[in-house]
């Protein structure tokens, strides 16, 4: 008997998302299997961030289907949010709290323990002298590492990373790569958008190109779309 195939972590079928009546996603088809590391690439305004936010249940899919971790996020976005971790452009840190309080708060909000937060802080290189420094006084890189620690501490099943290498020095970017690889090895799925293509492509197991709110190329299926948006098989 063939082994049971696990359900995909993300399934978007003809997904449409409107931002102020403008179709930011105009019928996206994307399926991401569990444990995959998928790079979303494309020009500014292509819809990469919108895909990530829709998968997080932060934007409503008004047409088509969107299932994330087995949950219909178009209908029940709240059900999936605790299982998803998102690193967005903004760090999501309380300016008056230090990294320790920030990460412990976000970890406990997701049902993790303070010890998970402390471990994540250490893993992300937030030294003891920084733990109680208000986030407002941290450098961009230190805030980014703190936000990463908050994500790691939550131990999400689906990682959604929007430009995760931005604002980090080389050691920080290496740290991101290690965290992503470790998460995938532990069974999590990673969907990320990046303009740092050389590093991101080396990290990913699959590359999806988005433009004009639709998938134009997917290395898994090698589908290429012509400029009018018609998708044809390249093979």
């Amino acid at each position: 008997m063939a082994p049971a195939v696990p359900p995909p972590a993300v399934v978007l079928q003809a997904a449409v998302v409107l931002l102020d009546r403008f179709p930011a996603l105009a019928g996206v088809d994307l399926a991401v299997g569990k444990g995959e590391i998928v790079l979303l690439r494309g020009p500014n305004g292509a819809g990469k961030t919108t895909v990530l936010r829709a998968c997080a249940g932060l934007l409503r899919v008004v047409q088509g289907q969107a299932h994330v971790l087995g949950v219909d996020v178009a209908r029940s976005p709240r059900l999936v949010r605790r299982r998803v971790g998102m690193l967005a452009h903004d760090d999501g840190l309380y300016a008056d709290l230090g990294p320790a309080d920030n990460v412990r708060f976000w970890a406990r909000a997701a049902g993790a323990e303070a010890v998970d937060a402390d471990r994540a802080l250490a893993r992300c290189g937030i030294g003891e002298r920084l733990l109680d420094v208000p986030a407002a006084r941290l450098s961009t890189g230190q805030r980014r590492r703190t936000a990463l620690a908050a994500l790691v501490a939550r131990r999400p099943e689906l990682w959604l990373l929007d430009e995760p290498h931005a604002g980090l020095d080389r050691a920080g970017r290496d740290l991101v790569d290690d965290l992503v690889a470790d998460a995938a090895a532990a069974g999590a799925t990673v969907l990320f958008a990046s303009h740092e293509l050389e590093r991101a492509e080396a990290l990913s197991t699959r590359i999806v190109t988005i433009a004009g709110g639709a998938v134009r190329h997917d290395t898994a299926t090698a589908k290429i779309a012509d400029p009018d948006g018609e998708v044809a098989s390249a093979r």
């Binding site: 997080a56 249940g57 932060l58 709240r78 949010r81 605790r82 299982r83 998803v84 971790g85 998102m86 967005a88 452009h89 903004d90 760090d91 999501g92 840190l93 309380y94 300016a95 008056d96 976000w106 909000a109 997701a110 049902g111 936000a147 908050a150």
Partner: peptide
């Protein structure tokens, strides 16, 4: 006002609280 720091409101929605 403390919830209006960049990204905090969205992180709260995502937190599942």
């Amino acid at each position: 006002a403390v919830e209006s720091a960049p990204g905090v409101a969205e992180a709260l929605r995502l937190s599942g609280i």
